[in-house]
């Protein structure tokens, strides 16, 4: 097998599992530190990915995470087949959340996930279709 110059990682994000939610982003964080990536870059990637991962858990019955790392960036793709986001501009607003009370009591659903992703990602792409699902693509540059 020839070693490529892109490192790929794959994770399944289980549905409604609040205890293990965040494991994929933790694992990516560990990977990035093993690569010697700068701490602040790791932090940006970890927060952005964590929020996307949590969204897949609480809003979309879980999904998958695919990570691609090359010499100068990490690309994080979180995909789900959940309900989709009807009004993305509205969802992007700080504090907007449709999370039910039960979820909120667990400390999730402050409506800051999407705004934080925007803040920490160098590029954020969201493809969403009601009834079909959502794909969030986060790019964080190493330099």
């Amino acid at each position: 097998m020839g070693l490529s110059n892109v490192l790929k990682l794959h994770f399944d994000i289980p549905a409604n599992d609040f205890v293990s939610a965040g494991e994929a982003s933790s694992s990516v964080k560990k990977t990035l530190s093993q690569l010697g990536i700068a701490p602040q870059v790791i932090k940006k990637s970890a927060i952005a990915m964590y929020e996307a991962e949590i969204n897949a858990v609480i809003h979309a019955n879980g999904g998958t995470a695919d990570i691609e790392i090359d010499q100068d960036k990490v690309i994080i793709k979180i995909q789900d087949e959940g309900p989709g986001i009807p009004d993305l501009d509205l969802a992007m607003q700080e504090g907007f959340s449709t999370a039910p009370d039960t979820v909120r009591q667990m400390g999730f659903g402050a409506g800051m996930g999407l705004p934080n992703m925007k803040r920490y990602a160098d590029e954020l792409k969201i493809n969403t279709e009601v009834g079909r699902g959502t794909t969030v693509i986060i790019r964080v540059n190493f330099a």
């Binding site: 990682l9 530190s33 093993q34 690569l35 010697g36």
Partner: peptide, 24 residues
């Protein structure tokens, strides 16, 4: 100071190769 003892290699390309092998 940051003490990055978890780093697999000082060279990013080499670290990536090591990580890929590690995963395999």
């Amino acid at each position: 100071e940051c003490k990055p003892v978890m780093k697999l290699d000082i060279d990013l390309a080499k670290a990536m190769k090591k990580l890929e092998t590690l995963e395999l």
